[in-house]
């Protein structure tokens, strides 16, 4: 599904990614762990197409297509979803309007029928119930006045509605209490299928108790320095990143 080869990228002339090789097959969930500044967020932004990152080498293919040549909206329509570490507030844009516009933009791009307002509401309400989200969050401005936990749940709601093929979760666990963490994890686990893959970027092992990955990769100074099974995350928790680097 996702194949990254020798990927290097820089911001303002400063190298952040220094040669990343990674393959995520269909149906697998991979965790990327690493200390602050190791390039975790940069990797997620480069994969989703944010401006300001200079790709200096390597390639990324998504189901055989050159992902780096696509606009952000094309990547989304192709099935890539980024759950933001810091979801953006959009004052004046209603959450329901935003979600339906996004859903229909992707459907249009794929040549599918658009969903009307009634169908959408039905769909959204069902998903929101699963995520224990109050219904008035549909009426409010996107992420405006949402608590940290509500913002993260709103990311997972978007993911559930847009049903991507590849989800990149950028520190989705940060700022969540244990109840919210469980709800968010259930939201991700509900999407697990042979056609769904995920890159779970996290600082801590805690999230991986709830979303059990197939593989764990350790990112340090812009390179993946170690890969292993779920047990690698536990080892990191016990002995820290320094022991891996050594």
């Amino acid at each position: 599904m996702l194949r990254i080869e020798g990927l290097t990228a820089e911001i303002d002339g400063k190298a952040i990614l220094r040669g990343i090789d990674l393959e995520v097959p269909s149906g697998e969930l991979h965790a990327i762990m690493g200390p602050n500044g190791s390039g975790k967020s940069t990797l997620s932004y480069v994969l989703s197409g944010r401006e300001g990152y200079e790709i200096t080498g390597g390639s990324v293919t998504f189901n055989g297509v050159d992902l780096l040549a696509m606009e952000p909206e094309e990547r989304a329509a192709a099935g890539v979803f980024l759950a933001f570490q810091y979801p953006v507030e959009l004052p004046g844009v209603g959450n329901a309007n935003f979600l339906r516009t996004a859903l229909n933009a992707q459907r249009r791009h794929r040549g599918e029928n658009e969903v009307d307002a009634m169908q959408f509401l039905k769909l959204a309400r069902a998903r929101m119930k699963e995520l224990s989200m109050p219904e008035d969050m549909l009426k409010r401005g996107v992420n405006v006045g949402f608590s940290g936990g509500e913002k993260k749940r709103n990311e997972v709601l978007q993911m559930a509605l847009l049903s991507p093929k590849l989800a990149i979760l950028d520190e989705t666990d940060s700022g969540l209490d244990i109840d919210a963490l469980k709800i968010v994890s259930e939201g991700v686990n509900a999407l697990r299928s042979p056609a769904f893959s995920a890159l779970i970027i996290t600082h801590y092992q805690r999230l991986l108790d709830y979303i059990v990955p197939d593989r764990v990769h350790v990112l340090m100074a812009g390179r993946i320095v170690k890969s292993g099974g779920p047990e690698l995350a536990l080892a990191l928790e016990a002995s820290g990143y320094a022991s891996v680097a050594a």
């Binding site: 197409g49 606009e71 959009l90 844009v93």
Partner: peptide, 29 residues
Amino acid sequence: DPAQLFYLRSRGIPQQAARSMLVEAFLTE
């Protein structure tokens, strides 16, 4: 705001439509 534009585009909303949404939101307020 480029961060707002990217957020909308990352959800599949094309650039022109994303710009429109933000301008309309600004005026709606």
